[in-house]
């Protein structure tokens, strides 16, 4: 399935020491589970066997080789190739810039905008010990609830009706919607209408 029309953003922190860190808390299931240093090719262990890193380089579409971009890459094992997922410049973006991106992502209903055709939830699972960390993720994609504990993703359940999906929001994600919100799905392209 081709999913297009994704826009994204990250936070960049500069510490007193001069170290810079990227914090991406909203990319979904393939996002980093901890901050990544802006150090080219510095590898960080992500969920399970996945490794992630930033490289300071260029992407093929660039006509000018400067300024370089920071490219977020992952590989699902040490024997696998690195794959580039997204790229960002060091330039600061303002609230006003995101308002424009947000208008497209929330309002444009063409097929290029997968947000309007997909119901999505991703919540990471935390280990509650001295050494805190992310150990898994729970996902909902349209009618399917899936879970990954660091290995293969497994299907937990499939919802075919709105009633079942609302139950899954509550029981698996602890998300409770108001009656008004629940009614908002009626007649929409992503409404679950059962198998009949």
């Amino acid at each position: 399935m081709l999913r297009q029309g994704r826009v994204h953003m990250v936070n960049i922190v500069t510490l007193a020491s001069g170290e810079r860190w990227m914090l991406d808390v909203a990319f979904g299931g393939d996002g980093p589970t901890k901050p990544l240093p802006l150090i080219s090719e510095h590898v960080t262990q992500n969920l399970g066997t996945q490794e992630v890193r930033l490289i300071h380089s260029t992407i093929p579409q660039q006509l000018e080789q400067n300024p370089k971009l920071w490219i977020y890459q992952y590989r699902n094992g040490k024997d696998k190739d690195w794959n580039s997922f997204y790229a960002f410049p060091e330039m600061e973006f303002f609230q006003a810039d995101f308002e424009i991106m947000n208008f497209f992502t929330s309002q444009y209903s063409g097929t290029i905008n997968f947000q309007k055709t997909t119901v999505l939830i991703i919540r990471f699972l935390r280990r509650e010990t001295e050494e805190e960390g992310i150990v898994g993720k729970l996902m909902l994609v349209n009618g399917e609830v899936k879970r990954n504990d660091g290995g293969k993703t497994r299907l937990v359940l499939t919802c075919t009706t709105e009633e079942e999906r609302l139950k899954a929001f509550k029981e698996h994600f602890d998300i409770r919607l108001t009656d008004e919100e629940v009614n908002g799905i009626k007649g929409r392209n992503v409404e679950l209408l059962g198998n009949s």
């Binding site: 808390v25 939830i121 935390r126 960390g133 919100e181 908002g184």
Partner: peptide, 19 residues
């Protein structure tokens, strides 16, 4: 970072479940 992503989900329900 860890507490944010494990407590506040990535979700786009507002696009589908809202007036």
């Amino acid at each position: 970072h860890i507490h944010q992503i494990s407590s506040i989900p990535y979700e786009n329900l507002i696009l589908h479940y809202s007036t």
